[in-house]
Amino acid sequence: MIYSDWLDYLPQLLEGLRTSLALAGASLAVGFPIGLLLALGVASPLRPLSGVCIVLVEAGRAVPALVFLQLAYYGLPSIGLTLASFVAGTVGLGWITAAYSSEIFRGGIASVPQGQREASVALGVSAFDTYRTIIIPQGLRVALPALLGLAIQIFQGTALAFTIALPELLSAAYGIGNQTFRFLSVLTLAGLLYVAIVIPAGILVRSLEVRMGRHLAPEYR
């Protein structure tokens, strides 16, 4: 199954892969901080604030990523906002990242024992400082493996940006296929490039999970 033409395709595909990775990185850089804010917002006692945050999270989880990309790229121009495809891709995947990561952050924060909060009240630590220096750092550690798992999924999701004319890995492969009419060969190579990122990353995340769970009894790992 080794194709002789793979070496010819590789430089162009690697160029596409670089764009895919850049889009994933930008989406995560936008999505994770917003996800953390959404997690805090959902838990807020202010009803209007928590309501808005819940709607943003539920929409992000219920609507396909592809629809968000299309909305950002083809939809927003109708209200006068024309975005470049990389920006539209970042907006679309960033929203998805924020929605899914907010649930992970929420789980991480909820895992911090209640006694920690009580102790910081007793010590006179302000609510803001309690979150900033006590709750969030501990919650983040619990959330980390799941966040990295999400990051892998977002990287896979960058293939959807093919539909908004972004020259990422799948677009590069499709473009070559159109020129050479050897779709099977070039698409297989593109698929293997995704595999070459996703599988090692998955192994790293799993080993991190094990490392971070070392203090737990076996049945909780």
Binding site: G177, T188, G191, V195, V198
Partner: peptide, 21 residues
């Protein structure tokens, strides 16, 4: 592992455009 590591949209392309050849 392969089925899960390759994005679904790439599977669709391989099957629709690739296998046609």
């Amino acid at each position: 592992d392969l089925s899960r590591a390759i994005p679904p949209i790439v599977w669709l392309f391989i099957i629709f455009f690739g296998l046609a050849e």
